[in-house]
Design a protein around this nucleic acid. Structure first.
Lengths: 339, 339
DNA sequence: ACGCCGACGTTATACGTAAAACCCCGGCGG
DNA sequence: CCGCCGGGGTTTTACGTATAACGTCGGCGT
């Protein structure tokens, strides 16, 4: 269209600097110590700068057999948590001259197309959220370095893992509620992956273990506000003594839960306490502001990318889970006296 | 690490099929009508399938001088609206064998690094939200096809534009409020780009033009809940008759506004009506559920990508703004009688 | 009987980069 | 005086693909 003025190549730079193309490549690749004089290197850099030379990435990838591109597989970008993970991953990728391309799950794009297969030859590695279960099998077949996020340590095929200390988060909320005096808890779980469910459920069970009169019920719901509201409404109108606190696996569910509580003519937190998980923007947008577990989402992305880079370098990725922290806000309070 | 078994090349396929590499390229590129026999083509395809051949994208890009990759520039992915735009763009891109890579604004990544410059040689075009103003200048210098989203039609350098009919959205909310009987409106604007501000402000002014006793005040705030709350709180406690309705430029601000209203001991919508913009998930997560303007965010991305593809093909992009629609929920009601 | 053509492929080349292999020359140790 | 070494480059090649240019061969029209 606009008649591109033909982007300059390394050969153009060489011509301008009065050297050979190889020299340009050496200088610009910082591989010239002792092979090229300081003066010549300067000439090359000046010429490159003057021509606004940018190396052709396709050519470089072809030559090097590497693309400096990682694939990030997430269930959905519209989930703030994963958007933040991307941000973190992209940040450290950029620091190392890498790019991050997204594969927002098989649900996001049509099932027929397979961005992964077509991108496969152009990738150096994959970072995958374990929640995107469907995509994982395809990836495993590709013998690419794979970093898994929040995954079952027993699941195979990962060169590295970065996990959040989810169990500790659940433990913290639970202890917070127990300390406030709550004894009847309802666990509102998001039906995402069986592993994340299990780890939360057992952490919760463990936390109430030494509180003799504590009792926990569990219901699960798809991850959206409406579903959370409905599930909660159903659970709270069930016969038997009503729970006084709701432990939700996600702020989104917690928001739904709050709505349900109020629909039933009750108040949060006076009648029923509600806790969330993730500490999304949503947590402080609703009323009352949610007591929730804050997750370092960006850090997950950063660690994921760092781990991938480490694997690619043959180094050992940094071990250990990422810590989470309880944020107490206004959605939790002692249970009503008559309860 | 894992000793990759050396991905098969087109030459490997050729060897397996007993033909030359050129023939493989012809067959797999669907350019063989009348140049290769049906039988040979079959052999080639079988061999390719058997070897699980995937073309090397870097090599193809180098040869073709095209990367089938577009850059999407957005202010922040954590904003649900832009995450949805990405989703739409990625969808139609995939349908045409294109990829979409993100540049989440200069604020997201450090100022020193310039992903755009380094990616520049590897891009076929750019789709940019006008809100990412800082990045635009750099892009213009790159003489790449540029599609602008929600941009001033007078701004230069765009090969195509896709705009939402924002003005109509504002008109619709305003008329809704006027019909309910509101006369004193407060416009809570998000200080994003001067163009989007202007278009909204004038649309609002126009909508109240023929309602003689209607009066509009404007305040603006950064785009987050807390800022929205503070700005609203200040504006509502100012001297003079209090507005009965708040027209917010974004659901996020509207959420803040609702909190502010309640802090002042008033109710939404009985004392003050609040409207949002965007129809994010947030709109139905808070209470009361927001009356807001629903934007087809995915469509923006789809149209943006389609337009870019059209430009690259030398075709004319589809003209016209995308329609928006008012969604009336529970945050608007007639003003109190004594007002 | 010859030329020509169409069907079916093949050979050769270019894309821009990185790096291995090579080359030249001045100085220095033996 | 010769060989060798190291500094400072250059020549050449390979990466995998797409495609232009080139062959070959059988048949058919004249």
């Amino acid at each position: 269209m606009t008649e591109q003025p033909a982007r300059p190549t390394s050969r153009d730079v060489a011509r301008a600097a009065g050297v050979s193309q190889a020299t340009v490549s050496l200088v610009l690749g910082d591989k010239w110590r002792g092979r090229v004089s300081e003066r010549t290197a300067g000439l090359v850099r000046d010429a490159a700068h003057a021509l606004e030379y940018r190396p052709n990435l396709a050519a470089r990838s072809l030559r090097l057999g590497t693309t400096r591109t990682a694939l990030l597989v997430v269930p959905a970008l519209t989930n703030e948590f994963f958007a933040r993970v991307y941000t973190g991953a992209a940040e450290v990728a950029a620091e190392h001259g890498f790019g991050v391309v997204l594969y927002p799950s098989p649900a996001g794009v049509g099932p027929a197309r397979d961005p992964f297969a077509s991108a496969r030859a152009a990738l150096d590695g994959v970072i995958a959220s374990s929640m995107a279960t469907q995509a994982l099998d395809a990836i495993r077949g590709a013998d690419l370095p794979l970093v898994m996020l929040d995954s079952d340590p027993d699941a195979p095929g990962a060169a590295a893992r970065v996990n959040l200390d989810i169990a500790d988060g659940i433990r913290q909320v639970t202890e917070h509620l127990l300390a406030l005096g709550h004894r009847r808890l309802l666990h509102l779980a998001s039906a995402i992956s069986s592993w994340t469910f299990d780890i939360r459920a057992t952490a919760l069970a463990e936390a109430v273990r030494n509180v003799p009169d504590a009792v926990v019920r569990t219901v699960s719901a798809p991850l959206d506000v409406g579903a959370g509201r409905e599930a909660t409404e159903r659970a709270l109108s069930a016969p038997g003594p009503r729970p006084t606190a709701l432990v939700c696996d996600d702020d989104i569910l917690a928001a739904g839960a709050c709505k349900a509580v109020r629909r039933l003519g009750l108040r949060v937190p006076e009648d029923i306490s509600v806790t969330g998980f993730d500490d999304l923007a949503l947590a402080t947008a609703i009323e009352p502001e949610l007591t929730t577990v804050s997750l370092p989402a960006e850090r997950v992305g950063e660690r994921g990318m760092s781990a991938l880079l480490a694997v690619l370098d043959g180094r050992r990725p940094e071990p250990g889970d990422l810590p989470v922290s309880l944020v107490v806000r206004a959605s939790t309070a002692p249970p009503p006296r008559d309860a």
